[in-house]
Simulated assay, not measured.
Amino acid sequence: MVRPPLTPRTVIRTAADLADAQGLDEVTLSAVARELDVRTPSLYAHVRDLAALRDGVTILALGELADRDGDAIAGRAGRDALRALCDAHRDYARAHPGRWQSLQRRAGDAVVRSDEAARSSRALAAVLRGYGVDESDQVHATRLVGAFLNGFLHLEHVGSFAHSAPPADDSWLLLIDRLDALLDHWHTKGEK
């Protein structure tokens, strides 16, 4: 088997695949080097250090998720767009658990400044605009949606919902409905 050329993209993609298979905590420079059948020092020409490697996985995940989000919400608004965005995140978390885990860590400056982070933010901003959430409130609404997604998907991933009825799918739909209602009435927050 011919080994692909060693590039930053190859190193990051290998790290992301390793994260999906074994968990983000198992992604180390030496583990990625073993996967690529190279010596660890060879990676330093492509990634600065472990933090940069993990930031690379996060940037990759943000880009992949932004693509899914954009496709999911295209031509939709309100609850349909919210449900599509939430489902895209849930599907991604299930298909790529290590990449998803990389989104649950404090991001470095390279992640924050990346085009992928900006694209990912735009999808949720588009959903929120459909609800009439003022730009000045979008950060709060973004945090609310993010807290729902991250909390639910983490608890589902670790099996917290496996031992009680109703099934998690029922709660998922109900909570999206409640989130939809809250966002639909966001503009009335200051009215008495």
Rank of each mutant, 00 (worst) to 15 (best):
R79L: 01
T188D: 14
A16C: 13
S136G: 13
P41C: 14
D137P: 02
R79S: 06
E26I: 01
S120M: 05
S120P: 00
L173D: 15
D169P: 10
P41A: 15
A61D: 04
L128N: 01
R105H: 06
R34H: 09
G108L: 01
E116K: 02
T40C: 12
P167F: 03
M1Y: 11
H163C: 08
A141H: 08
A45V: 09
D177K: 13
A19P: 09
G159A: 13
H163F: 11
V57M: 02
L175D: 14
R178Y: 10
W172R: 08
R99E: 06
L82F: 08
R79V: 02
H157R: 13
L128I: 00
A31H: 12
T10Y: 03
L175V: 09
T58K: 07
Y44L: 15
A19Q: 04
R3S: 13
A33L: 09
D69M: 08
L174Q: 13
V111M: 03
A165H: 08
A84T: 07
T142N: 10
E135S: 13
L24E: 03
L24Y: 01
R122E: 14
V2P: 14
L179M: 15
D17G: 14
A165S: 14
T10F: 00
L103W: 04
L144V: 09
D91S: 14
L85E: 07
E26M: 09
A126I: 02
E26D: 11
W100T: 04
D67S: 11
R119I: 05
P5L: 10
D87M: 12
P167N: 10
R34S: 11
A165Y: 05
T142Q: 11
P166R: 10
H46A: 12
D49L: 04
R90L: 10
D177L: 10
R178A: 14
Y131S: 02
Q104W: 01
A81I: 01
S114H: 02
H157N: 03
E135C: 02
V57D: 04
E156M: 02
T142Y: 06
A123C: 05
L128E: 02
V38I: 15
D20T: 06
T142R: 12
T14R: 06
L50T: 15
E156K: 03
L62Q: 09
R119D: 13
P97C: 10
L18I: 10
S42I: 09
A95C: 07
K189R: 13
A84V: 00
T10Q: 14
R113A: 15
I73P: 04
F148K: 06
L53H: 09
R68T: 07
S42D: 14
Y131P: 04
R3H: 07
A123I: 01
L50Y: 08
S102Y: 00
T14M: 10
R129N: 03
R122F: 03
R39E: 15
R105S: 10
R106T: 10
L85Q: 05
D134T: 05
D170M: 08
E26C: 11
A123N: 01
A110I: 07
T142M: 06
D87P: 11
L183S: 13
V111I: 02
H157A: 13
F161S: 06
A16G: 11
L124Q: 02
F161L: 13
N150T: 05
